[in-house]
Amino acid sequence: MPNLPEAAFLNHAGLNRQHVFNLAELPADLVAPLAPAAHERQLILFGHAGRRLWECVQAEGIRTEHPIDEYSVRTVEAWLAQALPAARARFVFPQSLGSRHIGLQRLGTIAGWHRASPFMVGIDSVWGSWFAYRVAILTDTDLPASQPVDNGYPCTSCATKPCITACPAGALAGGSFNLAACNAGRLAAESDCALGCTARSACPVGAEHRYEESQICHSAAGSLATIRRYQENLHKIA
């Protein structure tokens, strides 16, 4: 965990994963789409792990289409005003802001947060898959760069692989993730995974940090709507 000023504020607000990158030390093809200005020297990535963030979002009330994004942005804005009032910062994620493409999973891999699970969600041995990327900003700061964390990778030592057998669509049965099968399974009538991934829920790692059902359903409803729009567009093209 980086030694960010006022990190306790972020942790209490649920953004309990933070990582500071020096742009000059990141792969050029990862930085280029962000089109950093000359004064932008660092990227700070904020994530959440466990249930605390959703508890905070619910306490404010769910009144908009993107309550998690909006809460997270407001929290980082408040943190910047409190901890780094002189800093210039530009939000490059979340995408609900209309931001540029950003390679979150690659950044997470560099930070040590992201190792792919069979069900294609990042995982580690502490939090399991119950974490997510929430905000990324480019800044003119000169904070100490964070060191990668290593919470361990549980999948290589998992003998039973319950996530594979739990998927009703068989999307993990072939030894690699089958996106088409996953999408078809979620769109099926009376699907068991329309509003929550049964493979993800079957994974025992980090089970104590598992999201509340309301958060699982909220996030899954958003991705399900995206899948439906994609399929509708395919039919129009055909």
Results as ranks from 00 to 15, higher is better:
I44F: 01
L234F: 04
N233L: 13
N16Q: 02
S129L: 02
F177A: 01
A87G: 00
I137H: 00
A136D: 15
R17P: 04
C197V: 04
G222Q: 08
M1P: 07
H39R: 11
H19K: 06
N11R: 08
A89L: 00
I137V: 05
A28G: 15
Q95A: 08
L97S: 11
C56H: 14
A35I: 10
A7T: 11
H19Q: 09
R228S: 05
A169G: 08
Q95M: 13
M120N: 12
I102D: 08
F21G: 13
A238N: 15
G61W: 09
E55Q: 14
L179E: 01
L80R: 00
A13Q: 04
G175C: 00
H48D: 09
Q82E: 00
A83N: 00
Q231G: 13
F119V: 09
D150A: 01
A202F: 04
L10M: 01
E6S: 11
W79N: 01
C217T: 08
D150V: 00
L234D: 04
Y230G: 12
A207T: 12
A35K: 12
I164G: 03
T160A: 09
R115G: 02
A180N: 06
P168M: 07
V135I: 02
A238D: 08
E60H: 10
I227K: 01
Q18P: 05
C193R: 12
A136S: 07
E213R: 04
L195I: 06
A86S: 03
I68H: 06
Y133M: 07
R106C: 07
G128T: 09
G47R: 15
W54T: 06
H209G: 13
S129M: 03
S176Q: 07
K161W: 06
A194F: 11
L107P: 11
A207H: 09
P154S: 06
P168T: 08
G152M: 00
G98P: 09
V126D: 10
H19T: 07
A180G: 08
C182Q: 02
P36K: 11
L195V: 10
S223P: 06
Y71D: 07
Q105T: 14
W54V: 05
L43W: 06
A180D: 10
N151R: 10
P204Y: 12
A220S: 05
R229T: 13
C197G: 04
P168D: 10
L97T: 08
I44T: 02
A166W: 03
L143N: 01
A180Y: 13
D150Q: 00
R106D: 04
G112L: 12
I123Y: 00
L34Q: 08
T226D: 14
G185L: 09
L53H: 06
H19S: 15
G170R: 02
A59D: 05
S191L: 10
V20I: 05
L172K: 02
Q231W: 12
P162G: 03
R186F: 03
A188G: 15
P67S: 11
E70H: 14
S201K: 11
R106M: 10
H39D: 15
S157P: 15
V126T: 09
G196Y: 01
G50I: 06
P162W: 05
D29G: 05
I110Y: 05
L138A: 04
S117Q: 04
L23K: 06
H218P: 14
A220E: 01
E232D: 15
P118Q: 02
L34G: 05
R90A: 09
S157C: 08
L104W: 11
N178T: 02
S191W: 09
